[in-house]
Amino acid sequence: MPAPQNDNDINLIDLAATIVRNKRFFYVAFLLSISIGVAAAIIIPSKYQYVSTYQVADTRVGDATRPLEPIAKTIATIENQWLLELLHDYYTKNEEELPFDIYASTPESTTMIQLISVAKENEAALVSSTHENILDQVNSHLDQLVVSNRKFWIDEISAMQALIERLETTRDSGDALVRAIELKTSYENQLEYLKTPETTAIARKGTKKASTNSILIIAGSSILGLFIGVFSALFAGFIHSVRRQLA
């Protein structure tokens, strides 16, 4: 024997019937939500990825190229010092936060650093100036390393040349002289391989949009419109029932 139905129980068939009877409220709410979503997708500016690339100072060790300073250390300095200083200065000057983020990374198997930002087209000049500001500080820092390394190798070459000259006047110094010449040649190669840092691109704009804002906005507005439409139809049915009972 079926259990008696409580008047307060929710009957899905009645809910569906209520929605159908008040479908005009559903359609209005649903279409209004989609219209707002489409309008927002058109109005909101698209964003693009901007990438700056920087070739760090490096040298050769054997057959491999090695940066003068570990790239992970340089990136850590960017993120924890120069970038924070830039953000602070921008906020102090403009009383608002920088409208985009800046990320530092290194492409695999390279001695390069990338600065990446996702921003609107009208922010391209600001992206360029902020990236350039950071890379100028990186360049100044690495230039000092290049100068100190160059001085080190020049001093080593001079010292080895002086040793070679002394060995050339010493008897039975053949093996030592050969070794000194080899070392001098190695030092000269190190000096020759020493490469200065270089900015290779500033805020290069990607060819594709960096985000799918339009699709997400329209999809979100459609889902939201579905819920609002159902709620509007049920609420209209509820108001109609209340008025009927009060009549």
Rank of each mutant, 00 (worst) to 15 (best):
A210T: 04
I44C: 02
L12C: 05
K205I: 02
Q161R: 01
P99D: 13
R21F: 07
K195M: 10
L12I: 10
H240V: 02
E182Y: 11
L177Q: 02
L191I: 02
A219W: 08
I116C: 01
Y91S: 08
S105A: 10
R204A: 08
R244Q: 14
E192A: 10
G229S: 09
Y187N: 01
I113G: 02
T77V: 13
M112K: 14
N6A: 12
I36H: 04
E188P: 02
A219R: 10
A72D: 15
A17Y: 08
S232C: 13
N8K: 11
G62S: 11
N6K: 11
L12S: 02
Y103P: 00
A219I: 13
G206T: 03
S140K: 15
N213V: 14
Y91T: 12
T207H: 02
S52P: 01
F25C: 05
I13A: 11
P107G: 13
E121H: 00
L142P: 01
L135E: 04
A233L: 05
S105R: 11
H240P: 00
F100Q: 06
S186N: 15
V146L: 05
R179K: 14
F30A: 13
A201T: 09
P67N: 06
A247R: 06
T77L: 04
Q55F: 07
F235D: 01
Y91M: 11
E79G: 05
I43T: 13
N22E: 07
I44P: 00
S221P: 05
V38D: 12
V127T: 01
S33H: 11
G229A: 08
V230P: 02
R60Q: 15
L226W: 08
A201G: 12
L12E: 03
A176F: 06
F227V: 09
I102P: 05
S105T: 13
A219G: 10
R21H: 12
Q144E: 12
I215N: 05
N189R: 08
E188V: 00
Y103K: 14
A219P: 01
I44K: 03
T169L: 09
A104Y: 04
D14N: 09
Q190I: 02
Q49I: 13
A3M: 12
T110Q: 12
S173Q: 04
